[in-house]
Nucleic acid binder design. Structure first.
Lengths: 112, 112
DNA sequence: ACCACATTAAACCATCTGGTTGACAATAAG
DNA sequence: CTTATTGTCAACCAGATGGTTTAATGTGGT
């Protein structure tokens, strides 16, 4: 189901555990055990999240002795951010006109 | 499982059909039928995607006659973009040093 | 009143997800 | 060699997802 790069990137980011792991990696490299430690979770469970991040290209692993050291790989994040930036005008330029329009509609309809 | 705003936003974006619907909405308002039309899919199937987008706060609906007119609502996109921008330094400032480091590691290990 | 259209809701299905457990492999250390 | 550490793999589970079909609702047009 998940096919292209944006799919896998956004999917990887749609989970607080994985975003936490990325935040942890932002502070420095971590082994899988270290990455999973903050979350109440089995080692194998954490390893699955790591694999999702790896498949999305968001981290890179290298072996050091018996440890797997993970490091952040931000390229896919850049692509995702570029895609999102495409929509910037919809929350800036159009905001004023949209808001007026929506206000008017809300008064007529739900009034949320 | 899906809890906070970033979760629902990223999850909604992790699907090409839904991103396509957003792209369609970028050109103007659309009914659910119009949104689903480009994708080989049942109406009910398309309506489910629309509901995901709505739950993520990415679209807003209003009733016009017997149609449900959907309009883009970009606020959550802005939040997601802001979160992603947080990582910008990892694909800019650190890129040079990281690349050198990774190169050295690759030569020693896998050589991917 | 009646029919066609736009949408909703519910039941169902296959697959994916996020998590567990337990068995196993590889490496460091004693 | 033996043992503890670090990680992989496969099986399993409950629940979510993405899709279908079918039946029902609401609305507009005639």
């Amino acid at each position: 189901m998940v096919e292209n790069r944006l799919d896998t990137t956004f999917h990887a980011l749609a989970d607080p555990t994985r975003r936490g792991m990325l935040a942890s990696l932002a502070l420095g490299e971590r082994s899988i055990g270290e990455l999973g430690e903050p979350f109440c979770m089995t080692f194998a469970g954490a390893a699955k999240h790591v694999k999702v991040l790896e498949n999305a290209g968001l981290i890179r692993r290298r072996k050091v002795g018996r440890k797997q050291i993970c490091a952040l790989q931000a390229k896919p994040l850049e692509e995702a951010e570029r895609w999102l930036r495409q929509w910037e005008r919809f929350w800036t330029v159009r905001l004023d006109q949209l808001e007026a329009l929506i206000e008017r509609e809300n008064q007529k309809e739900t009034g949320e």
